[in-house]
Amino acid sequence: MINEEEVKKIADLASLKLSEEETKTFAKQLSDIVDYVEKLDELDTDDIVPTAYTIPVKNVLRKDEVEESLDIEKVLKNAPEELDNQFRVPKIMDEDN
């Protein structure tokens, strides 16, 4: 079971702002999904090595060579807000305030 309190905590970690309505719905839906995925407990995996990569590839490396960077116009083309060739963001406020 995932309660609304937990949903809020997760939303915080994920930088999501949820409405009361969404928080309620997600508590129910996430609980259902988590119940479903707990099906996995039926399988014995004690001695099983986890798989992070399905392909037998290792050591993919590039040479330390510099190539041209992106034009500054293109870097900033999609920027919601810019100033002096930098991306501007709103003030970072203390949580206490």
Binding site: V60, L61, R62, K63, D64, E65, V66, E67, S69, L70, I72, V75, L76, D84, N85, Q86, F87
Partner: peptide
Amino acid sequence: SCSTEFGKEPNTNTCPVCLGLPGTLPVLNK
């Protein structure tokens, strides 16, 4: 493959990969 040179004009040593643009992927420098 962007340069690591210090003191360049802001954001001139950047590319889709180090800007984290959607779809880009890292390749490790040996």
